[in-house]
């Protein structure tokens, strides 16, 4: 009896790390500021022309179509904004997030995006998907060999949607 009990204990102790190892499959690298809720709103970018508005809409649709709880909606009452302009700087996109009360502003740089895009619509969409990713705690350039919309090495001409790695990270938060 005693031997059987000991065998049971040993088996459980050996199996437990294996189970934990599976649950640690996602090694999320996350920022420390992001939306406290999976659903976020943003003011509709009606001030932008359709050349910009359409791929931004597509970026929002891309996030809303993921197997996560996150959603992005348009609301005229939202204090969150996304905009684009020709900025005198070298970045493609900027996401500024205030911790509390939470709010964010995304700015897309027409100067650098227009210069480097071979597929303009894809580039805007990919940049916007990347910037919205920061709202869900996703960090730039995660240390992984797996594809991620957050990586610096991405070519936004072709990479435009959240990848499984990103989805796993978002699901680790919400």
């Amino acid at each position: 009896m005693k031997i059987r009990f000991m065998k049971l204990v040993i088996s459980s102790l050996i199996l437990l790390p294996l189970v934990l190892g599976l649950s640690l499959k996602v090694n999320a690298e996350l920022t420390d500021i992001g939306s406290p809720t999976p659903g976020i709103n943003v003011k509709s970018p009606d001030h932008l022309n359709d050349t910009w508005k359409t791929p931004i809409n597509n970026a929002i649709t891309a996030w809303n179509g993921t197997a996560t709880k996150v959603t992005i909606g348009y609301s005229s009452a939202s204090s969150n904004t996304i905009t684009a302009a020709q900025y005198s700087d070298t970045w493609y996109g900027l996401n500024t997030q205030w911790r509390s009360p939470y709010k964010y502003t995304i700015q897309l740089n027409a100067r650098t995006i227009t210069r480097d895009a071979k597929n303009f619509s894809n580039f805007v969409k990919g940049t916007a998907v990347h910037e919205f990713g920061h709202c869900f705690f996703l960090k730039d350039n995660p240390n992984t060999t797996l594809p991620s919309i957050m990586k610096y090495s991405n070519d936004f001409n072709t990479v435009t949607t959240p990848r499984p790695y990103d989805i796993d990270d978002v699901n680790s938060v919400y």
């Binding site: 500021i33 911790r99 960090k139």
Partner: peptide, 22 residues
């Protein structure tokens, strides 16, 4: 992040996080 009162760093300042893609 979900707290309704303002978060202050140890220096007493509000924190704002900026992520820039280059």
């Amino acid at each position: 992040s979900a707290a309704s009162d303002v978060h202050k760093s140890t220096a007493g300042k509000q924190e704002v996080l900026i992520d820039a893609s280059f």
